[in-house]
Every structure is written in structure tokens, then in C-alpha cells.
């Protein structure tokens, strides 16, 4: 082992192999399997092997951004939310932004971009810049959360140069909790970016089974089928007791079977063995949330 290499998890080694082969990858792991831990290892190893490359890591919330930033702090790494990342990379191209906004407003199939005015022509935004704020005021060029990703998708679709630029800026783009990401975002990363012949690696981290939002992409099955993304499954679970992950195994539909971690220092290990854990199953008939009552009768030690 060369100086500076920490021992890597087998999943991380597989990921590094995919990266070496120039392939995008997907790390699938259940709840508590330590995906963030793997993400950190992947980032560190990538930096070690590519000292001059910039890595962009996108995640869903500001809290998640903080967490990752605290665990890896390096000048080569940029951590941000998805919206902030894409806005930051398109905001200086006002000419194209305005053109895109006008096209999107005039496109009846696009639901999000709307203007109260009837006719929106090319001079609509002539004196204003497109800005990203917390509210939408289309007449003033102000867009918010919902519109940013749509306009970003449009810009990346229509301009190969910005795909070139993004790939040169960030030879490595990692996306955490991908399952909740808007399909538009995945389309940018796996579809539009490939218009550019430059090389870069997109890495997804997440769990198709933990998809919270209906409008999230859910899974990458379509892309996996085309081999645009290669999957690595995180079988070892570091945090949850055995009974929990075995139950989860029964519930999963993606064929992932979780096992105990080989790392004796993992949080779910005691004396080299995985903790068994306890499962209590409560249900209520009414549509009420009876969680508080359940806590009172539970033997799991809630205070």
C-alpha cells in the first residue's frame, strides 16, 4: 500500500475501479449502511489520486451540506445544495438565461414558467437580470426554487459549451440522496452533459427504497439499463442492529441483501459481533398519529 492510503471499504474500491474505467457509478445502500462514510472515503481517495481536480458534491439540504463539509474539508471540494450548484454555474450567462426564460414562458407544455403578461417577446427582460430568490416575480426576472432547475435543464440542453465548461470545472460530480432529486437534474447530469465530449465522472449515492418525494427520480433503473451508470451495492450495514436490517431486507424490492459490517469498530458492533436489536411493531386503526402513546408503552426506553 502506498503512503497515504487508508484501508478502503470493498464498495469504495469497486467505485474507484469504475472511476478508473471512466464510468459513472451508483452506490446503493440501505438506511444506516454508512453511505455518507463511503462518500467521504470516495472523495478523499479521488483527491489523493487527482490532486489538481475539483470535486463538486451536491446534496439535498443545507444541513447535509454542513455535515459533509465538516467531515471533509479540502480546497478541491465544493459542497452545496443542488439548487445552489446549478444556479452558481449558470447565473453569469444572462443573455442565455433571458432567452431561456422567454422560451419557457411561451412554451405551453412547461407548467412552471408563467408570466401574468400575455405577450412575452425578446425584449421582455431587457433591463432586468434573471435573479434567484425565495419568491417568484416573473415580470422582474425573479425566479425561485421551482424554476431554477427547469431553466438549468434548458440551458444545459441547448448549450454544449456550458456542458464543456462544467465538465472541465468539475471532473467529478457526486450527488447524495439521489432518489429525491428531480428527474430534470439527473437528465442534466446523465443526458445533457454527454453532449460534450469531455470526460468527467458522475457519482450517485442513495437508496431507491428511501424515496420520500413523489416527484423525485426514485431510481436510476432506466440509466442503469443503458449502462450509463454502473451500480455498486453497499451490503454491509454499519449502524443498524441485525434484526432491523434483516427486516429491511425482506421489505426491499431491489434485490439488495444487507449483512453485518466487517469493521469491528462500526457503531452496531460489540465485541466483534453485531448487536441483535429489538423490533416493536405498533399500528393504529384511526388516521391519527399515535406515536406519543406508543412511546409511553414501549419497552425501548423512550424517556
Amino acid at each position: 500500500m502506498a503512503e497515504g492510503e487508508v484501508s478502503l471499504e470493498p464498495e469504495v474500491e469497486k467505485i474507484i475501479e469504475h472511476i478508473g474505467g471512466g464510468n459513472n457509478f451508483l452506490l446503493s445502500g440501505g438506511a444506516g449502511s454508512g453511505k455518507t462514510y463511503s462518500l467521504v472515503q470516495v472523495i478523499r481517495e479521488t483527491i489523493r489520486q487527482n490532486p489538481t481536480a475539483q470535486i463538486a458534491c451536491m446534496t439535498y439540504t443545507n444541513a447535509a451540506v454542513r455535515e459533509i463539509s465538516e467531515r471533509v474539508n479540502h480546497t478541491n471540494l465544493t459542497v452545496s445544495t443542488i439548487h445552489d450548484f446549478f444556479w452558481d454555474n449558470i447565473k453569469s450567462y444572462q443573455k442565455e438565461l433571458k432567452k431561456a426564460a422567454i422560451e419557457l414562458i411561451n412554451d405551453p407544455d412547461v407548467k412552471r414558467f408563467n408570466s401574468p403578461d400575455e405577450d412575452v417577446d425578446l425584449d421582455y427582460f431587457v433591463d432586468k437580470d434573471i435573479q434567484y430568490k425565495e419568491f417568484t416575480l416573473m415580470r422582474e426576472g425573479i425566479i425561485s426554487h421551482d424554476e431554477v432547475l427547469t431553466i438549468a435543464n434548458y440551458i444545459f440542453k441547448k448549450n454544449i459549451k456550458i456542458c464543456d465548461i462544467l465538465k472541465d470545472k468539475y471532473p467529478f460530480i457526486f450527488l447524495d440522496e439521489y432518489q429525491d432529486t428531480a428527474p430534470e437534474v439527473v437528465e442534466i447530469l446523465l443526458s445533457h452533459l454527454s453532449q460534450s465530449l469531455k470526460k468527467n465522472i458522475i457519482g450517485f449515492f442513495g437508496d431507491a427504497m428511501q424515496s420520500i418525494y413523489d416527484d423525485g427520480i426514485g431510481n436510476l433503473a432506466v440509466y442503469q439499463a443503458q449502462n450509463v451508470v454502473l451500480e455498486v451495492q453497499k451490503e454491509q450495514n454499519r449502524r443498524n442492529p441485525r434484526l432491523i436490517y434483516e427486516l429491511a431486507n425482506k421489505l426491499r424490492t431491489d434485490g439488495l441483501v444487507q449483512v453485518a459490517s466487517v469493521d469491528e469498530a462500526a457503531p452496531n458492533m460489540v465485541d466483534g459481533n453485531v448487536i441483535d436489536g429489538t423490533i416493536e411493531f405498533y399500528y393504529s386503526l384511526a388516521n391519527e398519529d399515535k406515536f406519543e402513546e406508543a412511546k409511553k408503552i414501549s419497552r425501548l426506553g423512550f424517556r
Binding site: E96, N159, K161, D168, K169, L197
Partner: peptide, 19 residues
């Protein structure tokens, strides 16, 4: 040109996406 590494000038210096 298309063979150049645009990482630096792609950051706020290039102002026009016209190919």
C-alpha cells in the same frame, strides 16, 4: 478552442455561450 481546459475561464470569465 474545444481542446482547452475551460475550468478556469469557464468560471465567470467566459461570458458568452455562443459556440
Amino acid at each position: 478552442d474545444e481542446n482547452d481546459d475551460l475550468a478556469n475561464i469557464g468560471n465567470k470569465v467566459i461570458m458568452d455561450l455562443d459556440p
